[in-house]
Amino acid sequence: MSWFVNLYRSTIGKKIIMAVTGLIGIGFVLVHMLGNLQVFIGQDKFDAYAAMLHGPLAEVVWGLRIVLIVAVVLHVLMAWQLTQRARAARPVDYRMREPQVSTWASRTMRWGGVLLLVFIVFHILHFTVGVIDPAHAFHETDALGRHDIYGDVVASFRIWWVSAFYIVAMIFLGLHLFHGAWSSLRTLGVAHPSAHPLKRRISAAIAIIVWLGFTLVPLGVIAGIVH
């Protein structure tokens, strides 16, 4: 395990940990998004999907949850440590430093990341645990007696500030992925050299798909398509 200790101690190692955990996150987010989009198929399918996750697949879901929790914890911990290190690396700041090519996405990784963390906590308390229940719909059941996630989603997103929070958070998720998807492959050293290394078409596509995929749900509710 000494190799892991060395890795953990070095800045590149910490970045590698961030990249790997970030990629796990991207994978999760894509699957999660596909699940969400079933809301457009209708209440029956959507609640059935939710029931399947809580029923026959519960053990698998718990396994994945543990992986995700570890990933998020490591990701945040590494981000915290590296941020401290970066602060220490420039104790006296410039009076003026003009960013030349760095994207807004890359420069908002830290604060955007904090916002996402707040969002994740809120989101879990909202749809998973039900501690936050603005629509008072978490404990409802549907016609088949299943947990009515569909109804909760529709009722929640009809509340303007809930939709607004989710939509804003998804913008930051998109930005986070726009930089993260691209940089994680470079951090892992698997990206091919390029004449224009700052171009990032694939990660732009991922960012837009994820942002759009998640944002469609509250928009669908607001527009009355999902009801």
Binding site: L82, A86, Q100, V101, S106, M109, S183, L198
Partner: peptide
């Protein structure tokens, strides 16, 4: 005590020899 790399790309742009972040 240097900081870590976040792949901002600022270094490549500042480099007078245009060395690539690749």
């Amino acid at each position: 005590d240097f900081g870590h790399c976040t792949l901002f790309g600022e270094c490549q742009e500042a480099c007078p020899k245009g060395i690539s972040i690749d």
